[in-house]
Design a binder for these strands. Structure first.
Lengths: 211, 211, 211, 211
DNA sequence: TATGAATGAGGATTCATTCAT
DNA sequence: AATGAATGAATCCTCATTCAT
C-alpha cells in the first residue's frame, strides 16, 4: 500500500542497488524469471530478503531494472555499424564485438536468452519496436553495400540472425560447448571460424581469386 | 513399494503417458523446469494433478522422461551424416534436417535450450558423454573430407556449433525473429541463407570458379 | 495462475465451505477485513491454512462470500414491512425483528458494522443501489401512512435510521452495553424501551389520550 | 533506558506529537488498530516511520494515547447533564451535544466504534469503570426526574443507549447514511427527528395536550 | 484408473521495530 | 531531531506431493 522506497541516491544505495542487480544477473540468467527466487538473489547478494525489497519494490522490479539496464549495452554493437566503413570489415567487426560480449558477458546473454525463449513477456515491445527498427536500418545499409557490389547479395536479416546465433551460442550454450570441447577454449576457434564463414559468404568472388 | 507406478503398459496408460509428456513439452519448453508447475502441465493435459502423479512419480520424472525421449530424436540427424556421401551435400543435408526440426519441433528445441542455458543439471552427463563422442566421430569424418581436399579446411567442432546455432536460433528465438521479420516466414530465407553460408565456407575455390 | 478450486459441490465441500464461512464470520466480524488473518480463520475453523485456500481462492474470497451470503438475510426484515398492515404494528414489528437479529446474530451485525465504518469498500455499491431503493420504497409507504393521518408526520429516512441505530447498537456495542449493565440482560429492556420510543413518536395524540 | 523518549516538552515535540495523533486518528478510525499500519500513519503525518517511533514508543503507544486523549472529551457531554436543570431540556441538550460531536468529530466516534466492536481490548476497563459509574449516576438523576413526574417513566440506561446509538450512527455509519440520502445533509433531519423522538418519549401526556 | 481432500515446505511481500548516524 | 538502513516475524498465497476412496 505505502511502500517506502528510497528516493534519493546515496552512496550506500547505489552500492546496494548495484550489488542486487549483479546478484540478480547471476540468478535470473541461470533460472529465468519464474525459476528464480528472491532467496537465491538475496543469498548471492549477501543481503537479507527484506533488505532486497527495501531497494526494489518487488522481484519483478529487480528483473525489469536488470533487463532495462542490460538492454542498452545489448543493442550498442549493432548501432556501431558504420555505413561509410568497409562493408566486410564492418560486419566482421560487429561479429567480433558480439563474440566478445558472449565471452565477457555471458550472463547478460543468457538473461536475454531465457527471456526470449520464454516468450519475451517483458521485452516483447522492445523487440517489435526498437530492435526491429534498428535491424531495419542496418538491413538498408547492408543492401546498399550489396547493390554497390561491395559484398555479395545476401539477405541482411538472416545475415544478422546468423551473427546473433553464432556468437550468442557460445554464451547461451556454454555448458554444451565446453562439454564437447573439453579443455579447449571455445573463443579462439570461434573467432576464426566465424570470420571464415562471414568472409566466405560476403566476399565477392572476384576479390577472392584474381580472375 | 511406497508408490504404485503402473507396471503393465495397457493402452490407456500409453495414451495418458503420451498425453502428459506432450503437455509437459508445451510447458517445460516455455518455462524451464523450475519455472513450470504441475498445475500448468495438468491443465494442458486436461488431467487432474494427482492423476499426473499416478503415471509419473514426480514432476522431475515427467521432465526427465521428456528429455530422455526427445534426446534420441535430437541426436539422430548428426548420426545420419554419411562419411561416404558427398561432403558438402552431407553437411548441407544435416543443416537442413536441423532447420526442419527447428521449424517443426520448436518446442523440443526450446526444451533443450532451457535445460542447457540453466546449466544442464540433468543432461550434463549426456553432453559430456554421448554427445561429445558423437561430435568427435563426426569431427573425424569432416577432417577426413578436408584432408582429402573435398572441402576447405575448417574447424569441425565450430562448424557443427555454427550449424546448431543457426538452425536452433529459429526455434529458440522464434519470438525475436518474428518480431523483426513481421509477417515474413523465417524459414524460407533461413534455408537459403544457411546454404549460402555453408557453401561459401566449405566449397573449395577451385570448384566455385573455374580457374 | 492455475488455481484448482472445487467445481462440483460434494457433501464434504459444502460442509467445509460452511465451516470456513462460519469461522470467517467469527474472525472478520471482530477484526474487520484488514485486521483479520487467515491464520485466525484457519484456527477457528480447525483447518489448515492451505486447506482454507483449497475451498476459497483467497482471503478476500472468503470475506466477499460471507458478505454476500449475509446481505440477503440482512435486508429481509425491511422487505417484510406491509403497506397494507397497521402502521404502528408494522414498524414496531420491523424494529422487533431487527432487535431479534441483533440478539441472535450479533456477529453478522458487527460484520457489516466493521465494513461500513471502514468505508464500505466492498458493499458501497449495494448501499447506493439495492439498499437505497429499498429504503426509498419504504419511505413512500411511511409517508403514505402519515398523509392518511394514521401515524404522526415523521421523516421516514431518519425513522429508519433510528431503528437501525437503536437495534444494531445492542449487537455492535455489545461489550459496552454489558459493561454498563453488568449482569442485566440488555434485550428485555431494549425491546420495551424501543417500543415506547416508537409509540411515542408515531402514535397520533388523539389515539394516546381520548380527547 | 533502552529507548530514548523525549522527556522535556519542547515546542517542536508538542507539535509533532499532535501531528502524529491527528494522523493516527485518521488512520485508526478508518481501519481499527489491527488494520492500520505505521506506514499509513507516517504518510498521513508527513513524517518518516522511524520519526513516529521517536515520539511514541510503538504503534500501540500512539493508539493508546489517542484513545486516552479522546476519551475525556467523549465522556464530557454526559457529565454536563444538570440534575437541577429542566429534565427534557437537559436530555435534549445532551442528545444535541452528542449529535454535534458526530457531525464535527466523526473520526473520534469511529475510533471508539472500531475499538468497541472489536471487543474493546484497550478500553474495557474504562467501560466497566469510569463509564459505568458515570452512567449509573446519570441514571439516578433521570430516575429522580421520573419519580418527580417531570418526565415519563423510562429505563434510564436504555434511554442513554438510544441517545448514543442514534447520534453516533450518523458518524459511524456515515457512508451508509449518505448512500441512502444522496445529497441531502443528514444532520438537519437528524436533529429534528431525534428531538421529536425524545419529546414523544419523555414528555408527560399532560404536558403534551392540555387535558 | 481417477480424483477430491489435505498439507508441509516454500516464496513473495508487509510490517513494526531497531540501529547507526 | 531526524532518517536511511536493516531485519525477524508475520501474512497471503503457491506448489509438489500424499492419502483415502
Amino acid at each position: 500500500m505505502t511502500k517506502t522506497v528510497p528516493k534519493s541516491d546515496t552512496r550506500i544505495q547505489k552500492k546496494n542497488q548495484a550489488l542486487i542487480m549483479s546478484a540478480g544477473l547471476v540468478v535470473f540468467s541461470q533460472f529465468g524469471f519464474r525459476g528464480s527466487t528472491l532467496d537465491l538473489v538475496a543469498q548471492e547478494a549477501g543481503l537479507s530478503k527484506p533488505n532486497l525489497l527495501y531497494y526494489f519494490r518487488s522481484k519483478d522490479a529487480i528483473y525489469t531494472a536488470l533487463l532495462a539496464k542490460t538492454l542498452t549495452n545489448w543493442l550498442e554493437p549493432l548501432r556501431k555499424i558504420d555505413a561509410k566503413g568497409d562493408p566486410v570489415e564492418e560486419l566482421l567487426g560487429y561479429a567480433k564485438r558480439k563474440l566478445d560480449m558472449s565471452q565477457h558477458y555471458p550472463r547478460e546473454s543468457r538473461l536475454f536468452a531465457n527471456e526470449i525463449i520464454q516468450g519475451a513477456p517483458r521485452i516483447g515491445d522492445v523487440l517489435r519496436g526498437e530492435l526491429r527498427e534498428l535491424v531495419d536500418e542496418t538491413a538498408v545499409v547492408i543492401n546498399g553495400w550489396a547493390t554497390a557490389g561491395r559484398i555479395n547479395k545476401v539477405d541482411p536479416y538472416h545475415l544478422i540472425f546468423s551473427i546473433w546465433a553464432q556468437t550468442q551460442h557460445y554464451a547461451d550454450f556454454d555448458v554444451q560447448v565446453r562439454s564437447v570441447l573439453g579443455n579447449i577454449d571455445p573463443f579462439d576457434g570461434a573467432q576464426y571460424h566465424l570470420e571464415a564463414m562471414l568472409r566466405g559468404l560476403l566476399t565477392p568472388l572476384v576479390d577472392q581469386k584474381g580472375c
